[in-house]
């Protein structure tokens, strides 16, 4: 692995080809169509937010993008080239890193052991081939510093870190090992307001380093500040795909909760005598 990762692609450089693009992709499980003709794309140095309620098809989409599932119809383009990943390993080799919600770090292991788990740097050979611990610790501190986190003690167990810092380790690790596209699965859903804010900062950080970020969430308040594009899914279909300039946060919230449905709910609750705050 290289020592430092330079931004591989400057934002909007050369031909205007998205890093990753899907066109009219569908996936069926038996008779159930999980997603139908979904299109989306992410460019280098941009954040594409995929929003949707539970059951909207977000997980299926992630699994297709990360190589766990294969799409049935449609096109999957990696830097303009039609691609089909047979396994998560293949996707990873192509530079697609996925950070799953809670399955990314081992709480009892130290920060540096977690960071390099499965890809430990070694020195020496034969029975003396050993992990290059000083280098591992140094790299962890450098990479985390790039995220704006000062790791004082790389021996600290990850379980003692905050949820946001744990996400930061996963993100920093993906970037260090050469990710071009970073897929984040609900990175803020288990976090409080403050920690969520930090994770959004890490996302912005990855974006500024030229990574294409796909940010999957059900929270428009988290998506809107950091996103460049917003794809809203509903029952396996794309409800809409907007650039930031085309949609306000309020509109996004409305789209997310299915506009008319929310109005009706509000109306219903009010009739029942509940005092409901109008949405901001």
């Amino acid at each position: 692995m290289t020592d430092t990762i330079q931004p591989t692609t400057a934002p909007a450089s050369g031909a205007d080809v998205p890093l990753l693009e899907i066109r009219a992709v569908s996936k069926r499980f038996g008779s159930v169509t999980a997603i139908r003709e979904v299109s989306a794309h992410v460019r280098a140095g941009c954040v594409t937010c995929v929003l949707g309620d539970n059951g909207a098809g977000k997980s299926t989409l992630i699994k297709i993008l990360s190589g766990v599932h294969q799409h049935d119809d449609g096109e999957f383009l990696m830097e303009g080239v039609p691609t089909r990943f047979g396994s998560p390993r293949e996707a990873k080799a192509q530079g697609i890193a996925t950070v799953f919600q809670d399955l990314a770090t081992v709480p009892l292991m130290s920060v540096w052991r977690n960071f390099f788990l499965g890809s430990e740097p070694t020195k020496g050979s034969g029975p003396l081939r050993r992990i290059d611990v000083p280098r591992a610790k140094r790299v962890v501190r450098e990479e985390m510093a790039k995220m704006g986190i000062d790791v004082r003690d790389p021996e600290q167990p990850v379980g003692t870190l905050s949820g946001g810092e744990r996400q930061a380790i996963s993100i920093a690790r993906a970037l260090y090992f050469g990710a071009k596209v970073l897929i984040l699965d609900e990175p803020t859903s288990a976090l409080g307001v403050k920690q969520s804010g930090r994770v959004l900062r890490y996302i912005a950080n990855a974006r500024d380093r030229g990574i294409g970020v796909i940010f999957i969430t059900h929270n428009p308040h988290h998506a809107h500040p950091v996103g460049d594009r917003f794809v809203v899914l509903n029952r396996g279909r794309v409800l809409g795909d907007w650039a930031k300039a085309e949609i306000s946060r309020e509109e996004l919230i409305k789209m997310m909760s299915g506009g008319a449905e929310l109005d009706m709910l509000e109306h219903e609750l009010r009739r029942g005598g509940f005092d409901v705050d109008p949405q901001p």
Partner: peptide, 18 residues
């Protein structure tokens, strides 16, 4: 126009010299 940079709302990380 599809990729409007939007660093205004989210401050970047503080530069860390460690």
């Amino acid at each position: 126009m599809s990729s409007t940079p939007s660093s205004a709302t989210v401050p970047g990380p503080s530069p860390a010299g460690v």
